[in-house]
Design a protein around this nucleic acid. Structure first.
Lengths: 218, 218
DNA sequence: GACCTGGGATACCGATCGGTATCGAGTACT
DNA sequence: AGTACTCGATACCGATCGGTATCCCAGGTC
């Protein structure tokens, strides 16, 4: 006979299936039957674990937001690197993360929409504030340590960083070839005043473009 | 008896109602009955004018994208202004537009999602390319005219500008107080190398914050 | 090993909604 | 003015889906 899987396992499988299907097809357009079937269960398991569809969505948000945003934190937590390299690394890491998780970024935006509209959990707003504070502190520390005069205060640099990371990911979704991999890093170098003076042409150097692998989802 | 309104009028009323309701509640969650009733008609008018719900959405996208994006074009079309002022104006105008049209920006993102997922019209991708090209040209012209050495090529400046405008609007949605009105303009000044040398502190000067009119939608 | 309990399966309900067939009032054309 | 036609209104259908009541079996307990 079929062993009954532990509850945590069921929950994980449902969350993973929901993340994938919600991201691919949109939350509203994906039925709970689809999610349950993809996870190898039925709708009953969903209601037993999450109570409602909104409950599933909230749990999913809570489950994934932290992991997603912590990527950014991890990228700025390392202090032992020169500021310029730091900025480039941060940009590269954020860009790579957004690229790997194309589908997840779509889900991310949909959850953000729900939060803005007042539906669903407010985990987004809260976590965003947390991240913003942490990024601000990290930037201030790095800029101070480097002794450069950034053209913007750390708090606003953090805002710009988050907005740019997100905005560039969106642009890349719409047209994968239009955003160079290291663009975010180079912009950060300029914004943090980390570019060694006298060689602006180096920062602006044209990249080797042309690898527009436009593999649309599915 | 009731005069029958001209066809164009019916179409306009339906599109306007759809824009409002779709933006406020999401496209999927808004029924055609709701849209039609809000416009003072019935579902028959929708099907007579647009054929299907997707037809309405496509028409809405086609109708609004241009108007929305042309704001950006108008802001960069004026050449007779010094580059720094130009950048600030552009930032201010884009920020103000995003602020006025909070609801519309939500709809904008939803249409973008549909385009990325391959559903609906590809008007977004096409128009985005158009806008990107136009912005690139405008930036190149302005930077050339000003004779400054921008730290990034015009094409990438255009990408960053679009991403940042969009990303900052998203951040502002999530937390209206976290994005100063003129932030976009100041960032542009830095990125275009338009800041007069020797007074970086002016650009970074703290703004009079605190007017966070957090009027969340409805 | 009989019993209870909890969690997932199953069957079903009611509501919603996109879409369609049809009707009838205005409108344009001659 | 009469006629044909357009276009929006109305009624209705079928499918989908969230949610629920109920059942049934696996696991732990004594």
């Amino acid at each position: 006979m079929r062993r009954r899987p532990p509850r945590d396992e069921v929950r994980r499988a449902l969350l993973d299936a929901a993340a994938e299907l919600f991201a691919r097809g949109g939350i509203d357009a994906t039925s709970l039957d689809d999610v349950a079937r993809a996870a190898g269960f039925t709708k009953g398991a969903v209601y037993s674990n999450f109570g409602s569809k909104d409950g599933l969505v909230d749990a999913l948000a809570e489950d994934r937001i932290s992991a997603y945003l912590d990527l950014g934190l991890a990228a700025v937590s390392d202090v032992a690197v020169p500021l310029e390299q730091q900025a480039r690394d941060l940009g590269d890491r954020l860009s790579a993360a957004a690229e790997e998780q194309r589908d997840w970024h779509l889900l991310f935006l949909e959850l953000w929409q729900r939060a803005v509209r007042g539906e669903g959990s407010q985990a987004f707003r809260e976590r965003r504030r947390d991240l913003h504070g942490a990024v601000t502190a990290a930037i201030a520390e790095h800029v101070d340590a480097a002794g450069v005069a950034a053209p913007l205060p750390a708090e606003e640099l953090a805002t710009v960083l988050m907005a740019l990371s997100n905005g560039l990911a969106i642009e890349r979704h719409a047209d994968p070839g239009s955003v160079a991999d290291d663009l975010l890093g180079r912009v950060l170098v300029v914004l943090m005043g980390a570019a060694p003076p006298g060689r602006p042409a180096d920062v602006a150097r044209e990249q080797t473009r042309g690898e527009a692998q436009s593999s649309v989802d599915q």
